[in-house]
């Protein structure tokens, strides 16, 4: 195995891993307040990319990106109000089923509007040679952008009053409410934040690759990063995402001769492995909940 090839795969893995981490953070933020996985999150990623694409035909690119992010936030808030909130206190299967339903609803609407086409967003393509590694401007933008968003969200959680309130709600809803923290509003805010991150994730993925219906699968695979980090961890997603990214790229490189196309399915092997070995992830809180 050519070591340069390995190095390049690793770097690519880290870059895509940062975007995975960002999308995974969207799952985790919702999990922290609702104790539930938002299976509609992947479709917000997809929707944002298509909204940006369709809007960029008509408006200037920046406005298109802004519209995409707004659409993601609006959809996420709507899901919280119309689906997640009425289902609070119902068994997990209710929310899983309902968010999967919303998943398909939004997917249908997205494809209706965007047409299931594959297209590029209007950004400049340029190649940079960094030593032995060739990276495109799109790789760099998506990697650095994801890192920036991750840093901002983590700072929000760790350093601001809003972040403390969110952590309090994640820790203990009744306790937080007893201290006068507006729990409902924070739940809405958390979903909105998740929608924002998901939409940005969709944009970065679209910039890095292309706008296509495949983007939703990236978001589904990000679940592995989320779980590896622990569903209620915030900073841990960076580790989870990067491990997932590297596993995909390097695993694909090493195993492709024997199992063609295995790279993209590494995520699910990681998922199963984590679930069997350490279901609460590397950084998640262990709940004492025996079956």
């Amino acid at each position: 195995m050519d070591p340069m090839l390995l190095l390049e795969s690793t770097v690519r893995g880290v870059i895509i891993g940062l975007t995975y981490a960002m999308i995974a953070l969207g799952f985790n933020i919702v999990y922290r307040v609702n104790k539930s996985i938002n299976f509609a999150h992947p479709v917000i990623v997809l929707m944002a990319a298509y909204v940006a694409l369709v809007a960029s035909y008509r408006y200037n690119p920046l406005l298109a990106y802004l519209l995409a992010v707004l659409a993601g936030v609006a959809a996420s808030i709507a899901i919280e109000r119309l689906v997640a909130r009425p289902l609070l206190g119902r068994p997990p299967v209710a929310l899983i089923g309902a968010t999967l339903g919303i998943y398909y609803l939004i997917k249908g609407v997205t494809i209706t509007i965007g047409g299931a086409e594959t297209a590029s967003l209007p950004i400049a393509y340029k190649l940079y040679n960094l030593g032995p590694i060739t990276l495109g401007l799109n790789d760099i933008v998506s990697g650095l952008g994801s890192l920036l968003v991750l840093a901002l969200v983590i700072l929000l959680h760790m350093k601001t009053r809003l972040g403390s309130a969110m952590r309090a709600v994640a820790e203990d809803v009744e306790g937080a409410a007893a201290y006068g923290i507006p729990v409902r509003r924070l739940m809405s805010f958390s979903w909105a934040l998740a929608g924002l991150i998901g939409a940005l994730g969709g944009l970065f993925l679209a910039v890095k690759n292309q706008v296509s219906v495949e983007l939703e699968f990236y978001a589904i695979r990000a679940l592995a990063a989320s779980l590896l980090a622990g569903l209620d961890s915030i900073g841990g997603v960076i580790v989870g995402g990067i491990v997932l990214g590297i596993a995909e790229e390097v695993g694909g490189l090493l195993l492709d001769d024997y199992l063609p196309g295995i790279g993209y399915d590494m995520a699910f092997f990681i998922l199963l492995l984590v679930l069997f070995v350490k279901p609460y992830g590397l950084f998640g809180t262990e709940r004492i909940e025996r079956v």
Partner: peptide, 9 residues
């Protein structure tokens, strides 16, 4: 997609 999703939800 739309009908199936809406019905389920």
């Amino acid at each position: 997609y739309i009908v199936l999703g809406t019905l389920i939800a």
